[in-house]
């Protein structure tokens, strides 16, 4: 018990929790935007990977950090447009297309990395985003350093949640996104182009996913590793359901998840070798499944999720 309290009172724990949460915030927001418009995007895991690789690679080739972020977002949106072309334009299976995008984007990332750097054994590092302390706020005990002494990308994640929530609930564009995800025929009758809104939502959402990947290589690990995304994309899909498709709850879910993950790492260190380390590494995945089980009974899926829309077809 004493160990648990020690962990919870350490500043480094709270800082780590927010750091772990940041890519999940981006990914969950991105998936949420796609699904609110009625499109399941299983390409997320691959888009994370390709975002991580392309942002890092751009910086490694001499671009600035923000240039790298833009490259990652652009590449992510590109894969999002392919996903939208298939699922919205052609109306083919969102499940299968998504898996295809994940396979394509991650193998494209790995292939590019290996082709540009054929001989490297230890992954080359870049100079990452530095933490920025926000005056006054970062002096608050525990919460201050956790929330207000982070890198620029973490602040961008916070702002993204607010902007997404505002757009979704307070603007005509957000209304259009929600309408095409709930009742596309009615939206079309209101003069909204279902194809355009869904395509746009998937592209923007995929851009967010790539940002989540870029955070890993440009803010957290400073290098690109194979398999580094490690299921974060799939965890985001579970978090969207957990968050009932609401941006604020997505933020909360990502924080809870980050706190849990940071906690298990520290618990693992204090327990030592009594329990195999793999058990601890399994916990995030099992927690995601548990989260899905807890909310599944009252999960209010967007009604047109996974239903392709063809004009004039019932």
């Amino acid at each position: 018990m004493g160990e648990v309290i020690d962990i919870l009172l350490a500043v480094s724990f709270w800082v780590a929790a927010v750091r772990i949460a940041t890519p999940l915030i981006f990914g969950t927001l991105g998936e949420l935007i796609c699904e609110r418009a009625g499109v399941l995007n299983l390409g997320i895991e691959g888009i994370f990977t390709v975002g991580a690789m392309s942002g890092w690679m751009a910086v490694y080739q001499g671009m600035g950090l923000w240039g790298g972020v833009l490259v990652a977002v652009g590449v992510g949106m590109g894969f999002g447009l392919i996903h939208a072309g298939f699922t919205v334009g052609l109306g083919v299976s969102q499940h299968v297309t998504g898996i295809g995008i994940t396979l394509l984007a991650s193998s494209a990332a790995y292939f590019t990395y290996r082709t540009v750097l054929p001989d490297v054994t230890s992954p080359p590092r870049i100079e990452p985003f530095e933490p920025i302390a926000i005056p006054l706020l970062s002096d608050i005990p525990l919460i201050g350093p956790a929330l207000f002494h982070q890198t620029a990308l973490t602040y961008l994640a916070f702002v993204s949640v607010i902007v997404t929530a505002w757009v979704l609930y307070r603007t005509p564009l957000g209304l259009a996104v929600r309408a095409v995800g709930e009742n596309p025929a009615a939206a079309e009758a209101q003069g909204i182009s279902v194809v355009a809104v869904r395509t746009g939502a998937v592209a923007v959402g995929s851009g967010f996913m790539a940002l989540g990947g870029a955070f890993l290589t440009m803010s957290a690990f400073n290098a690109f590793f194979f398999e580094m995304v490690g299921g974060r994309g799939w965890i985001c899909i579970a978090l969207v359901v957990f968050a009932s498709w609401q941006p604020a709850k997505a933020l909360l879910g990502a924080f809870l998840f980050g706190a849990f993950d940071a906690f298990q790492v520290r618990l693992q260190q204090s327990i030592g070798a009594a329990i195999p380390y793999q058990v601890f590494l399994m916990l995030p995945y099992l927690l995601s499944i548990l989260a899905l089980i807890l909310v599944s009974r009252r999960a209010a899926y967007p009604r047109a999720l996974m239903v392709p829309y063809r004009k004039g077809e019932r």
């Binding site: 299983l42 499940h95 490690g230 299921g231 799939w234 965890i235 899909i237 579970a238 359901v241 793999q278 590494l281 399994m282 995945y285 099992l286 995601s288 499944i289 899905l292 089980i293 599944s296 009974r297 999960a299």
Partner: peptide
């Protein structure tokens, strides 16, 4: 329980590999 199997089967791949 109505839990979507896409995500659970995907996540169980990671659990199984760790096992």
């Amino acid at each position: 329980l109505g839990v979507d199997e896409v995500v659970t089967t995907l996540l169980l791949n990671f659990v199984m590999l760790l096992f």
